[in-house]
Every structure is written in C-alpha cells, then in structure tokens.
C-alpha cells in the first residue's frame, strides 16, 4: 500500500513529481501547500484523492475525476485493504488570509504500524492521547505548529519516532531533534533529508525498528 500525503507546492514548485505512482493521495486541507499537484498525480496513477469537503471541491475544480474522490469526515474511519484512516478536524491558518481554516489530522494504521500525521495543523486535537508509533508533525510555525508544540505533542503521545516536517530554516529540525532527545524520553527524533526513505517494522512482533536509507 502506498499513500501520498500532502503533495504540496512550495515556492511555486511541486514537491512531488507528477508521475509518482501511488494508490491513495490524502490532502489534509485545500491550500496549495497541502493539495499541491495531487490532481495531476492522481490522474497519472489513477489514485484515490481523500480530503475534507473543501479539498475535494478544489480537486473537482482542478478537473479531478469524481469517481476517484472521497470526502473524509471528522472521526469517520476510512478503510481499504492495508490502510485505515481516521481523520480529525483540526485547524491551521490560511496561508493567504491568515484566517483559521480546517486541517485534518490523520490517524493512520498501515498494517500494525500506527501513524499520526498532523498535516499543516496548528492545534493538536486529540493526538496527544493516541497511542501511536510514529508522529509526523510540522515544526515551521507561521500558521502551523511551531517547534515547541511539536515537541510537546511528542512528549505527551510518546511515539517511537518523531519526524519533523515543514520547516522553514535549517536550524528548526536540529532543535526539534535536540529537544526530543533531551525532553521526550523514549522518542527517537528522525530528521529526513530530501529523497530519503525510512522503513519501519515490528521485529518479532514487539520490537520497533527502523532503517533510514
């Protein structure tokens, strides 16, 4: 199962190549930095696009195929073989107006692996109480989580891995990693560089392991 999350456009450049092969694309909100070129990728790979109503409406405007779209509603699980998603309605600031807008936080189950993906969230919602193995969290501030809230979430959720995303300066992931290492007992920070992949699995059913390319 391959799931593409928030294939955003940053600085007018698509982060994800349009010929990326995937089964499912989930955008946590309709802003360009989240939705990005999801419609183009989905068209190429015939992938499902999942998102809240506003996101799906935006995809339709972009010419997305209606039969490949699915609206996610807060706290309603979506399940296909190999993937279970529970979205939660969170908030972010609209990058254009600065007004609050909905952003979905995603609780994902991929096999035995439980992942919390906060998207572009500015609030944590119930994610601090979930038992998850991996937290993927924005740290850049300015409408999304600043470092301190990302660290605070990891302290409370106690995942095995804390993966930062959406930073705007190179010292932010370093600080995130430093703070997790220092203040979040049992949480390993993992700062991923461009084109890196991480493989995670449960060894012998109860030992969490990961390998970074």
């Amino acid at each position: 199962m391959s799931v593409l999350l928030n294939p955003g456009i940053w600085q007018e450049e698509a982060v994800t190549p349009p010929d990326t092969e995937t089964k499912v694309i989930i955008a946590t909100n309709e802003a360009t930095d989240a939705l990005g070129n999801a419609t183009e990728v989905a068209t190429h790979s015939k992938a499902w696009i999942l998102g809240n109503e506003a996101t799906i409406e935006r995809v339709k405007e972009q010419g997305g195929k209606p039969w490949l779209l699915h609206v996610l509603r807060s706290e309603e699980p979506y399940e296909i073989p190999g993937l279970r998603v529970i979205p939660y309605s969170l908030k972010r600031d609209d990058p254009e107006t600065g007004e609050p807008m909905e952003n979905l936080g995603l609780y994902l189950e991929l096999g035995k692996m439980r992942v919390a993906y906060l998207g572009d969230s500015k609030v944590r919602g119930p994610f601090g109480q979930f038992e998850v193995d991996i937290v993927i969290v924005p740290i850049g501030g300015d409408g999304v989580f600043p470092i301190k809230d990302a660290v605070g979430l990891c302290i409370d959720a106690k995942p095995k891995l804390g993966i930062p995303m959406r930073w705007v300066s190179n010292d932010q992931p370093k600080k995130f990693a430093k703070y997790l290492d220092q203040f979040a007992q049992g949480v390993s920070p993992l700062v991923m560089e461009e084109d890196q992949t991480v493989e995670t699995h449960w060894a012998a059913g109860n030992e969490f392991r990961y390998e970074l390319s």
């Binding site: 969170l90 609030v123 944590r124 119930p126 109480q129 409370d156």
Partner: peptide
Amino acid sequence: LWTRMNPGDKK
C-alpha cells in the same frame, strides 16, 4: 478525563 486540550480543541 483528558490529559490535554489545545486552544481550539473540541470534544
């Protein structure tokens, strides 16, 4: 009992 509620969190 909820251990934490951020601003804007709703139950």
